[in-house]
């Protein structure tokens, strides 16, 4: 049974403890950023930020809604990035059987630019990034080192409000259902994002598109049909066929 996160956005205050704790544990250097009219900074995930709190605001019948989305790798049950990666270079992206953590190894430097793009596109949540200097692919590691030692991931340990939760999948699913039932009383639209497929389950209290473009797998593909989506995933095979 893999480990699972429950990220309860109804409790997130966007204090960004998780975003910073992640950088501090992994000793990721700071990017030079600038103010672009948003508190969301850096603007996107990047090789130095495996975790990013996204800010999104809109008016809902005159009521301000400000949604916070602590974005990170979903550690998919069956990770498309790994599947795609294996097509080119098997074993560069791996999944830890014990924890379910999906990990980019240092072999990921072998990916060509185009191969990396395929890996990135395969991810329904647009997570994989590449360090242009080292060529390494990067993303959340589930703090696999900590988890192997019985510690919580840095982002979970630091969270003050119970937005970030982590544990055995069965326990997290149970917690997710119970939290969902509670928050639905206040936010009828509340839902769990792709709980069956991922090990990082977001509890949302607003429509997914009001958080981010890649909140749920579906949202990323807009009006695309399942067939069209699968066709996208199958692209590399077409590429291989040409070889």
């Amino acid at each position: 049974m893999p480990k699972t996160f429950l990220i309860d956005t109804s409790r997130c205050t966007a204090c960004r403890g998780c975003q910073i704790a992640c950088k501090e544990w992994h000793e990721l250097p700071a990017n030079q950023t600038r103010q672009r009219g948003s508190h969301q900074n850096p603007p996107d995930l990047n090789p130095n930020n495996y975790k990013l709190v996204r800010f999104s605001e809109h008016l809902d019948n005159g009521v301000i809604r400000w949604n916070f989305f602590p974005d990170q790798c979903r550690h998919c049950d069956v990770p498309p990035c790994k599947e795609m990666g294996d097509v080119y270079h098997e074993g560069t992206i791996i999944q830890d059987e014990k924890t379910g953590a999906v990990l980019f190894t240092d072999k990921t430097t072998v990916f060509t630019g185009e191969e990396f793009e395929q890996v990135r596109e395969a991810c329904p949540y647009d997570i994989p990034r590449r360090d242009p200097k080292t060529g390494l692919l990067s993303k959340c590691t589930m703090c696999n080192d900590r988890v192997q030692k019985g510690m919580l991931p840095a982002c979970v340990k630091v969270c003050p409000t119970g937005a970030m939760n982590f544990g055995e999948r069965a326990d997290m699913l149970k917690l997710a259902e119970s939290r969902l039932a509670t928050v639905k009383k206040t936010w009828p639209k509340a839902m769990l994002a792709d709980p069956g497929d991922v090990n990082v389950i977001f509890l949302l209290i607003d429509d997914p598109e009001n958080y981010h473009t890649h909140t749920v797998a579906q949202a990323a593909f807009g009006p695309m049909t399942k067939k069209q989506f699968l066709a996208t995933l199958a692209r590399p095979f077409k590429a291989m066929a040409k070889v």
Binding site: H26, G91, I94, D96, L103, F104, T105, D106, K107, L136, S138, T141, N144, D145, Q148
Partner: peptide, 11 residues
């Protein structure tokens, strides 16, 4: 696995 895991760090 006999791979080193930078930047994943030792697990």
């Amino acid at each position: 696995l006999g791979v080193s895991l930078t930047p994943v760090r030792a697990y």
